[in-house]
Amino acid sequence: MDEVTFKSDTVLSDVHLYTPNHRHLMVRLNGMGQPVFLSQFKLLWNQDSQTDSGAEGGRHGMGPAEQTSASGPGSTRPPLGSGCSSDATSQEGVGARLDEDGDLDVERRPRAASDAEPAEPPRDKVHPTILTQEEDDPLADEARESSPQDVIRIEHTMATPLEDVGKQVWRGALLLADYILFQRDLFQGRTVLELGAGTGLASIIAATVARTVYCTDVGADLLAMCQRNIALNGHLTAAGGGVVKVKELDWLKDDLCTDPEVPFSWSQEDVSDLYSHTTILLAAEVFYDDDLTDALFRTLSRLVHKLENACTAILSVEKRLNFTLRHLDVTCEAYDHFRSWLQRLERLAGGRLRFAVEPVEASFPQLLVYERIQQLELWKIFVEPVT
């Protein structure tokens, strides 16, 4: 029997699945002709935890008013298990609620003139609006000036081919950003390197406390999006005095690109600063393909051997479960491959560096509004010289 392969042309991040369309504003087309949207994520600076989820405006559960009306004072619905009965639930009542075909006939309450208008417009009236397709967006400065301190604004795409998933916002990046906000002292005044930064969300949050953040990825279009997001959130990074530098770092190449003719290349000063001062490395949601995972860990190993200081790598991953025809079972192969690399690092012996791996319990307060699911994990890799 021939092997059956299913392919999907586009991938959509879970962050945007349940968010109302009117919360996303399509602002331009990127260099690949893909629509670019602008989303706001709320920062809960003054709260210890957050039980709501999703991007700003997302609604995934009953609010307090809905919970009260379901079982609180004034409710006409008897509590479950109370043993109460009424004529409506008697045998005669059930017969009266069935139509001629035996289906349940639900009588709709006529809408009163005093009923409030719905808070949100009907879905068929919600559509994105293109503000501009120019490279220099005149609204960028205005948006940056009007952004409050409790909002991070991110340009991103909504659905992309697999090779462009870095242009979307993923829950793992939000979890990593949460941890940075929770462990501000750990990042205070540090030099940080993020690998596979995507939209740059975690780098922007890190720059609120770190001294210098190297926000790295590959592809001029993606790096340009990072640069725009950093400019949009200058009100956040300026308060902490951090600097974000967007640079190209290709995991499939052994050396950093220092050609001044190449966009987002490294200067000799940046290379020297990177190797002399970096103590924290970050990576979020980059472990979805085995070949990329291999390249990431090889790059990580190569970099830490060049750093002058002991360092800590903080990795965010989502354990995605998939049914595969090969196993005829639910598996998480990409996650298993990621874990095998962690075990391999711990078993390394005979080198000049020692790797220690430990999981981070995701019980710290949620300071960004998103859906924190159980499958999101954080791992730390401590890298120290062997003495």
Rank of each mutant, 00 (worst) to 15 (best):
R109L: 14
Y288M: 03
R23M: 12
V244M: 06
L193K: 02
A112R: 15
I373N: 09
P78Q: 08
L104P: 02
F187W: 12
N229I: 09
F264T: 01
W379A: 00
A88C: 04
V106G: 00
L325H: 09
E269G: 02
Q34W: 04
V94R: 13
T299E: 08
E361V: 10
F287I: 04
V286E: 01
S147A: 15
E66W: 02
H337L: 01
P73V: 07
K42Y: 08
V286L: 12
A159F: 07
H24T: 04
E371K: 11
A55R: 01
R123V: 15
Y18R: 14
E194G: 01
L282A: 05
A313Y: 00
L17H: 14
G234A: 11
G219N: 13
W379F: 15
K7M: 12
V27G: 00
T293W: 05
V27N: 00
L25H: 10
L186R: 12
A65T: 08
T19L: 15
V218D: 00
S316D: 08
Q268F: 10
G189V: 07
I205R: 02
C215N: 11
V244I: 14
A65C: 02
G219L: 06
H24D: 05
L282I: 07
F187C: 06
F323A: 05
D9W: 06
L348H: 04
D291A: 14
G200A: 10
Q227A: 14
G198N: 05
I204N: 06
R298N: 11
A113Q: 11
D185L: 11
E107W: 13
L195C: 02
R228L: 05
D87S: 10
V317N: 04
P73F: 08
V218L: 15
L315P: 00
G351M: 02
V169D: 03
Q366K: 15
A55W: 08
D99E: 07
L328N: 12
R28N: 12
L252N: 14
S114G: 05
P263I: 03
A65S: 09
L249F: 11
G219M: 10
F355S: 00
D137S: 06
K306P: 00
P359E: 07
L104G: 03
D136A: 12
G61N: 06
A239H: 08
N233C: 05
L176F: 06
A112N: 13
R111M: 11
L29V: 06
L104T: 09
S49M: 11
L222R: 03
C84S: 09
R302G: 02
L378A: 05
L104K: 11
K380N: 10
V262L: 02
E384S: 08
H24A: 11
T76E: 12
H127M: 10
S276D: 15
F338S: 00
A207H: 07
I154P: 00
G351S: 14
M26L: 10
V271K: 13
